[in-house]
Each structure stands twice: as C-alpha cells, then as structure tokens.
C-alpha cells in the first residue's frame, strides 16, 4: 500500500488554531501542497495578515513575515523587490484585504507586483467576533449589522476579483470555493496556477477562496458549507475573471 494523501511538507506539524470546521485549514493545506509540488519551500516567503490566520506563520514551514493589518501586499512588495528570485505570497482575509488594505491590494495589482495573493473571503470579521466585513452580504446579520446589512446605509459588498480583473497588472484573478471535494480540487489548481504565474514572472495573481466561519455564522461545519453554497456563490460567482495565460470569464 502506498500513501496517497498526507500532510504536505510545507506545513509544520503544528495543530491549527482554527475553530472546528473552519475552512482556513483546507486552504492552508492547498497552499502547502502547491509549495511542495513546485519544490519552492526553500525560497518561498509568506506574509501573514491580521485576522484569524495571523498565526499562520507558525503553520507554514517556509520563512514568514507577519504584516500590519491590510499591509501584506506592501510588505510582500518589499520582500519581493529585495530578493526577486524568492516566491512571495500573502494570505489575507476579507477585512484585511478588502477594507483596511484596499489601497495596498489595488496598487500591488496596479504595479503588476509579481506576488501571489491568497484571499480568504468568508463575508465576516472572524477574529474580532463577527462584525460586518466589506464582503458581508446584503441583509446579512453581523454584530455590527444587527438588523442585517442595509445596502442603502452600509453599502454593497465588494467583488474583489471583478475589480482587480480590470487592471493591466493582474495576471490571474480567480474565485474558487472549498465547499466540496470538486471545488477544493479546483481551488488547488487555481492556487497552483497563481504560484506558477509568479515563477513565470507574469505579474500579480490573486485567488479568492470562498470560505466559512461556523462560529460567527452560528452554524455547524456542514451547515456553513451549505450557507456558503446558497448565499455566497450566487453573489460571488466562481470563475476566472482574468487569466493572461488562458480563458477569461
């Protein structure tokens, strides 16, 4: 018998700190598998965000830098410009990337910064306890939208991939989900493509991964995946929004 599935080498043998059923763990694994398969761990540097995944510097086996809230793309820019042959990725949540760090995200893409961004969108601020995120859905109840997100008052959710796809510097903008086996496998392909594009020096690549937050959504792990399918995917359609090397939606 052969081992057909095991923990990737690029993940340290440290238990994740995430809540049961939180899909951060799946996405971490996909990134780590990618690093393994491309054989790049030794010259990869990851940038940890502020948010639930702030401590991912303890999980990834490559060198890691923890960035101020929202500034990961700027920190990654510094890392990449300092040692261009290194592979640099950021791992950011929706508050980090699409609210406080909007400028850093957009301008990293504008510059065609040759980095890879893994963007985890779960439509809520997880770390601080379930407040409205820039990606919270219309009418979604959060701690700071207790009557549901009123779009006439709090604005509409931001569709990051669609926005970044309009920029020349973006090489890849793809939205994926990790709600079922097939989607996880697609997500993996997208993440691997994003890293490959960096190796090929194609520019800025972002993979937006629709993800869950059982704790702050008030649902169990399986209900959370169902909620993601029923509510998030319709608002945030999966697909390739920009791909300099292939088909674009």
């Amino acid at each position: 018998m052969a081992v057909v599935f095991q923990k990737p080498q690029a993940l340290l043998d440290v238990p994740f700190t995430y809540c049961p059923g939180c899909t951060h763990g799946i996405i971490h694994r996909l990134v780590a598998e990618t690093i393994d398969e491309l054989g790049i761990e030794g010259h990869t540097v990851g940038v940890a965000p502020v948010g639930c995944s702030v401590m991912n510097y303890n999980f990834f086996a490559c060198d890691m830098v923890q960035a101020p809230h929202g500034r990961a793309p700027a920190v990654a820019t510094g890392l990449k410009r300092a040692i261009p042959e290194n592979i640099v990725f950021t791992y950011q949540g929706d508050g980090d990337l699409a609210a406080i760090g909007t400028a850093e995200t957009v301008h990293a893409a504008v510059r065609g910064e040759n980095i890879t961004v893994v963007f985890v969108n779960n439509a809520i601020y997880g770390m601080t306890g379930g407040q409205m995120a820039p990606t919270s859905l219309p009418n979604q109840v959060t701690q700071t939208t207790p009557y549901g997100r009123d779009t006439s008052y709090s604005g509409h959710p931001i569709r990051v991939c669609e926005m970044l796809a309009t920029l020349e510097g973006t090489a890849l903008a793809q939205r994926v989900s990790v709600d079922n086996v097939k989607n996880v496998q697609n997500a993996k392909k997208a993440i691997k493509k994003a890293f490959t594009y960096q190796i090929e020096k194609r520019g800025f690549s972002i993979v937006e991964v629709l993800s869950t937050c059982p704790t702050n959504w008030g649902l169990d792990a399986q209900e959370s995946l169902q909620w993601l399918r029923d509510n998030m995917i319709p608002y945030y359609p999966l697909g390739v929004y920009k791909d300099v090397g292939g088909t674009t939606k």
């Binding site: 018998m1 081992v3 057909v4 599935f5 994740f16 939180c22 951060h24 763990g25 086996v181 792990a221």
Partner: peptide, 19 residues
C-alpha cells in the same frame, strides 16, 4: 476505496490515506 474525499475536506489535515 482510498478516494481521499475525507482527507480533502478535513480542515485539520488529520487524515492520511493509503491505497
């Protein structure tokens, strides 16, 4: 069957599959 679906969905990388 060793399809690894369980492992693919496990958020804690707690499953190893052999076949």
């Amino acid at each position: 069957t060793g399809c690894a679906s369980c492992a693919i969905m496990c958020p804690d990388v707690a499953i190893t599959v052999e076949r």
